[in-house]
């Protein structure tokens, strides 16, 4: 198995209570800025991290008081990896046929549940670790060489 060496890392642990995701957001933003990521990318990371922490608090830890959410940040020359780890009272099970954001906005389903879709749009990579033995582990990755994936098509008439 390939092991990746990360030149810098920090860890953060917050109470599993709505509102504390804001403190995690600001701590991780300070780390990412220090690692040289642009303000624009850090703003995306702040939104994605807040969503991921809220998921961990609400769903993974099921709003149980006295549980914790742990956030680990690792950075090397290529990427910034942030892992959000809850204590997993409820394990994430992916939806069989997830609706797209457009379908939801068109009223075809609940307006909730857009967090993961939003995170997917903002980050270069994001997802749950399927083999986590203890609680849900969700990771967010930002690459330094950001690949532009969503170039709007230019129509000439």
């Amino acid at each position: 198995m390939k092991t990746t060496y990360y030149s810098a890392s920090m860890e953060l642990s917050i109470p599993s209570e709505l509102g504390y995701e804001v403190i995690a957001r600001d701590a991780v933003a300070a780390f990412a800025l220090r690692m040289g990521f642009t303000h624009e990318r850090v703003e995306d990371l702040k939104t994605a991290l807040s969503e991921a922490c809220i998921n961990a608090i609400e769903h993974g830890n099921m709003l149980a008081p006295n549980l914790r959410v742990n956030v680990a940040c690792m950075c090397d020359n290529d990427r910034l990896l942030v892992e959000i780890h809850d204590q997993g009272l409820k394990h994430h099970t992916p939806a069989q046929m997830p609706l797209s954001m457009a379908d939801k906005l068109a009223g075809l389903g609940s307006m909730r549940g857009m967090g993961l879709l939003l995170i997917g749009q903002l980050m270069d990579e994001a997802g749950f670790d399927p083999n986590s033995p203890d609680g849900n582990r969700f990771h967010l990755t930002l690459y330094r060489q950001h690949t532009v994936e969503h170039v709007p098509s230019q129509r000439t008439e």
């Binding site: 920090m10 701590a27 300070a30």
Partner: peptide, 27 residues
């Protein structure tokens, strides 16, 4: 309520602690 931050001993990381404490104190 307790928030725990673990930082490597490298100058510059004090800024992460400053920003975290500031975010919390303001709130």
């Amino acid at each position: 309520k307790i928030i725990e931050l673990r930082l490597p001993s490298r100058l510059g990381y004090e800024r992460v602690a400053m920003d975290t404490a500031s975010s919390l104190a303001r709130r």
